[in-house]
Amino acid sequence: MDYHWDWLFFFRETDDGLKYYDWILSGLGWTTLVSLASLALALALGSALGVMRTTPKRWLVAIGDAYVDVFRNIPLIVQLFMWFFVVPELVPDRLGMWMKQDLPYVVIAVVGLGLYTAARIAEQVKAGINSLSRGQRNAGLALGLTEWQTYRHVRLPMAYRIVLPAMTSEAMNIFKNSAVTYAVGILELYFQYKQIIEKTSQVLEITIVVTLAYFALAFLMNRLLAFIERRTRVPGLIVGGKGSN
């Protein structure tokens, strides 16, 4: 194969006076930012939805179920395009103009990725709560706690610990899913990957480097959550099965 290997191209100058490795670093930064912000949104909303789906109130369950059905059955890229190109046309004119002109792209991208991921988190939170024995809730109520307090003090602390391994893989997935936001103009790692290929044609080198970068991000997230898992472990209780060490 007459492929011309050139590992040093990363240190060459680009059109805008930077070096190619600067592009990669900046992409890495955006990937991290979009992923972490989306994850925070997804955790908050997903937890609320997951709790709603386990309450005795039927209408809350119905809303939570409907949300999960909608957001899990439409591809991420289509959801992002809906947020960017369809929603601004459907809302009142002034709000639509503001979304199109003043609202930073990255905010819409984070909302899109966050709401998409929230459906997956909601599934896990629900599964975690349902895996607890019914006696936990009953004991809480018998002690005079309100329904909400049984969640806050009894059920959620256990449920989160149980689903932490599953959450870990979701948190690792979000870095990969964030690559799709390139399609709506976020200059994250995959966008830079594509751009560098167009400029240099050094496909193999850049593929190896970007693959390693995604590897590293997922690995760091995995370590972080494994650390949290260890720190929050309840002594004497074996929860979460095999875990992710």
């Binding site: 690792m172 870095f175 990969k176 899913n177 964030s178 690559a179 799709v180 390139y182 995959y190 990957y193 594509k194 290929i197 496909v203 193999l204 593929t207 970007v210 693959t211 995604y214 590897f215 997922a218």
Partner: peptide, 15 residues
């Protein structure tokens, strides 16, 4: 499992 699918799609298309 640790690489974004979009990246694999583009990489394979070229490689």
């Amino acid at each position: 499992r640790s690489v974004p699918l979009v990246q694999v799609i583009l990489a394979f298309y070229l490689i």
